[in-house]
Design a protein around this nucleic acid. Structure first.
Lengths: 153, 153
DNA sequence: CAATAGTTTCAGAGTATCCTGAAACCTGTG
DNA sequence: CACAGGTTTCAGGATACTCTGAAACTATTG
């Protein structure tokens, strides 16, 4: 199945959005296409021809996306090629990784404890409070998200 | 007041963290120094000498940070210079802007409605559900954050 | 209204990032 | 064990950032 104009538009749009998050346009295009392609799993060659990027680029970006947990590799007996597809519940699961950012933020704030200023110390301490708040809230929030998204009403 | 070694370490650490968010090391250094400097407001010249970057760079990055609402410009009668400082509650307030990202995400998901696939349509539709979930939850979450951070127990 | 403190703009240099195309490298299969 | 399909690596080119230093600009102040 070949890509249509409407699909190409969407792929480009996802690409630009991903780029605005400074995560690379090609990676975004791959995700965009994997969201709407049929079948949902695509070989490197199919990605190449539908997205118009080189084999090397596909290889690099797919590995990157795999590391981020946004793409998974599947294989089929009888076919030598690898296929790539979005894992189940990518989007809700991708929110899980925000927790590591929160932890990094907390670590940054704690590293500031040695240099807390006398005037307006909250410039440093508030960062820690914010990090602590999200560290507390995030798990419960995610649980509700997952319940809502994974078990349909 | 001149920057100490411990302070410089912290500034560099904030700089690297900011860089890891792909927001530029110099911008991060400015924020780091503005978190711990005394007085809390600094002129471009002070930023220059404490951070070791050029006047042009300070000018550019400070404008950028101002646009993001992470730095504010203040002036004092009797002084010709502008001074830069962190606004009150920068860190908790900076979480407010996440809402626009959520809205963008929702728009992206809605743009996909024209190309929803027959098999595994949730690859597209779940993105919208996630966006909607956060759009609903974020305001309340922020309100609790602000209450907690702004009125101390 | 001239001098000057302070700020912004801009060209050029340096650096990082991303892509391509080709070569190298795997690994099933005949 | 050689072949061939498929994937990864890598050098080189293009692009985009970001910084610097100097010139241009702005606006107080004497």
């Amino acid at each position: 199945m070949n890509i249509t104009d409407a699909q190409s538009d969407y792929v480009e749009r996802v690409g630009r959005f991903w780029e605005s998050l400074s995560m690379g346009r090609t990676a975004g295009r791959i995700l965009g296409w994997l969201m709407i392609c049929d079948p949902p799993h695509q070989s490197a060659v199919e990605l190449r021809s539908n997205l118009g990027v080189s084999a090397g680029s596909i290889s690099t970006q797919v590995r990157l996306l795999e590391q981020l947990g946004l793409v998974e590799r599947v294989t089929f007996s009888g076919s030598r090629a690898s296929f790539y597809q979005l894992p189940d519940h990518v989007w809700s699961r991708s929110m899980d990784t925000e927790l590591v950012r929160i932890v990094q933020m907390r670590a940054l704030a704690e590293a500031g404890s040695a240099v807390i200023p006398n005037i307006r110390p909250e410039r440093v301490t508030e960062l820690e409070e914010v990090a602590r708040f999200f560290a507390e809230e995030w798990p419960g929030l995610l649980e509700r998200l997952h319940r809502r998204v994974e078990v349909k009403p």
